[in-house]
Amino acid sequence: MATDSNRDQILSSLRRSRGRDGPVDEATAESLRARIAGHKRNIVPARTDTDHAGLVDLFETMAQKVFATTTRVSDMAEVPDAVAEYLRGANLPSEVVMAPDTDLDAAPWADTSMLEIRRGVPDEPDQVSITSAPSAVAETGTLAMYSGPAHPSTLNFVPETHVVVLPASRVVKSYEDVFDAVRELTADPDRGGLPPRTVNFITGPSRSGDIEQTLLLGAHGPRRLHIVIVEDD
């Protein structure tokens, strides 16, 4: 591939268009590097200027607005029953595929005879997935998911129904808060200085407006997104 000469030609036309015949001067480069390193926040909407309980409420309202459903439970012990009840109520199968995620181990799944649980990556026929969410953005009712050994991203997309367990303490204000959390993860020496491969911001179930602009849920990703909020604060 002749991309090296392509690269040089593109870079030199970019520079010519700015009246330069080489890279930016060192002082400018320094200030641009500082701009990146500083990653200053721009305007963050004021709707999230509230206390933490207010943020959890805002998250829930915004998620419902985009057709997610929610339940609240008061601790992890109640999660399996809440999930089973949701699946039964929506007439959904009780076989689920669950992330091999230690967060979820805190719930007494074995006590619920109503769920048949497999841990791992979803296959095409799997109907229901259960994952936790490491973070959630109140501003728009958005879940944030990070890929990793215990967090297959395909669980967020392949099954028809995605059930998410969200400890309320993880609700943050804005996308920017999630970015800071991702930066913290990235700094973990075990990760080789790399962020998770995939960060999914998920706002409601999958949808499409491609047929006469009619809003339809469940285009290719989940038709249903159910969030169990665990009031752990």
Partner: peptide, 13 residues
């Protein structure tokens, strides 16, 4: 916000 906003960085770890 759209349903899915996805950041991808490199291949799988």
């Amino acid at each position: 916000f759209s349903s899915y906003t996805t950041l991808s960085t490199g291949p799988k770890r």
